[in-house]
């Protein structure tokens, strides 16, 4: 559980607020879904510390998970 301790729910919320501030996230339903479904749950263990950074992240097989603004 070492990696998980890096995670802070506050970081994800801060990112969502920033995306709202930039006008990227607008509708209440989309914002609600982003809050309820954090990206960290869907990452390989070694990428979890970066879940709240607004970039695509590697998920193996040469593929990436979308950036939160995507």
């Amino acid at each position: 559980m070492g990696v998980v301790s890096f995670l802070s729910e506050g970081d994800w919320e801060r990112l969502i607020r920033s995306l709202i501030g930039q006008g990227i996230l607008k509708s209440p339903r989309v914002i609600r879904a982003m809050r309820l479904v954090p990206r960290s749950l869907f990452l390989p263990d070694d990428q979890r510390p970066y879940a709240a950074i607004d970039m695509p992240l590697p998920i193996g097989e040469g593929q990436t998970v979308s950036a939160p603004q995507g």
């Binding site: 479904v37 869907f42 979308s66 995507g70």
Partner: peptide
């Protein structure tokens, strides 16, 4: 699908 994250937000 990738990681399944985008589908779950949808």
């Amino acid at each position: 699908a990738g990681s399944g994250w985008h589908a779950s937000t949808i």
